[in-house]
């Protein structure tokens, strides 16, 4: 179990347990349950509703999106707290991992509320295409976020696989400012093995694992582009960010 690609018989039970615990944590904190998602009418915004989002002032749309992201991040924090070993890390490292990884997990979780056929995502009560976010003035970033969701959806991950991948992303041992890199590395390695084990059990083959590892750099790029866009927005609207953005959002992305 310490780095071997094919776990020994004795460690299989351990990996099954980790997969089970992680999956339960994911389902307890995933914001929208399967049953709720099934009940959603997958209703798209009507044209006049789209236009009303598009005609919002830029700062109003930014504020709305900051609120929605913050809500989603609060669930990710709860997920992190239930990851095996996370709360045993020092507080500095918990904060470092969440600051760097919480938005990445929001993007991962987005594939659960994404409709690939219509290229829409659940937002503010209905399914929204990229055009709904026009007022943000970040068309390129929005297009990349939608492309990412579509590409992750195409892997048809189960909730177990999604849970372990989310945990793997959060437990990235290469984040800057970690105090106990080794401990995070151990947790991430164990999560990687559990993910590999579950993928094998689900007869998915190694191709999926490789594709998921490639997604890690795509996630980092999306998040750094989000930070760049926020900086550009804040340069123009410093008071809007200071007075109207959720405090947690500012803590995470405020620099």
């Amino acid at each position: 179990s310490d780095g071997d690609a094919s776990p020994t018989a004795s460690s299989v039970a351990e990996l099954d347990h980790l997969a089970h615990v992680t999956s339960r944590s994911h389902l307890e904190t995933c914001q929208y349950l399967r049953e709720e998602l099934q009940q959603m009418s997958w209703q798209n915004f009507l044209q006049d509703e789209v236009e009303s989002y598009q005609s919002k002032p830029r700062e109003g749309m930014w504020q709305l999106c900051a609120v929605k992201i913050t809500e989603a991040i609060q669930y990710v924090v709860e997920f992190a707290k239930r990851i095996d070993g996370f709360m045993d890390l020092c507080q500095n490292d918990q904060i470092v991992l969440l600051k760097a990884g919480s938005l990445e997990v929001v993007f991962v979780r987005m594939c659960r509320v994404f409709d690939s056929q219509n290229n829409t995502v659940y937002f503010d009560g209905k399914f929204a295409g990229p055009d709904v976010f026009k007022a943000l003035g970040c068309d390129d970033l929005i297009a990349s976020v939608f492309d990412f969701a579509k590409s992750l959806c195409s892997l048809h991950l189960t909730e177990d696989e999604l849970a372990l991948f989310s945990s793997f992303v959060l437990l990235s041992a290469d984040r800057t400012w970690l105090q106990d890199k080794l401990q995070v590395e151990k947790l991430q390695q164990k999560t990687h093995l559990a993910l590999q084990h579950v993928l094998q059990k689900n007869q998915r083959g190694d191709g999926v694992l490789h594709k998921l590892r490639c997604k890690v750099s795509a996630l980092r790029s999306l998040c750094s582009r989000h930070t760049e866009k926020l900086s550009a927005f804040r340069a123009v609207y410093p008071d809007v960010v200071r007075t109207h953005f959720p405090p947690l959002y500012k803590e995470l992305f405020g620099g």
Binding site: V77, E78, Q94, K99, P247, L248, L252
Partner: peptide, 20 residues
């Protein structure tokens, strides 16, 4: 700690998604 006050609070509180 002051810089990440809310994150600290969220990490320390035993909240559940229903409370969020």
């Amino acid at each position: 700690k002051e810089k990440h006050k809310i994150l600290h609070q969220l990490l320390q509180n035993s909240t559940s998604p229903v409370d969020l």
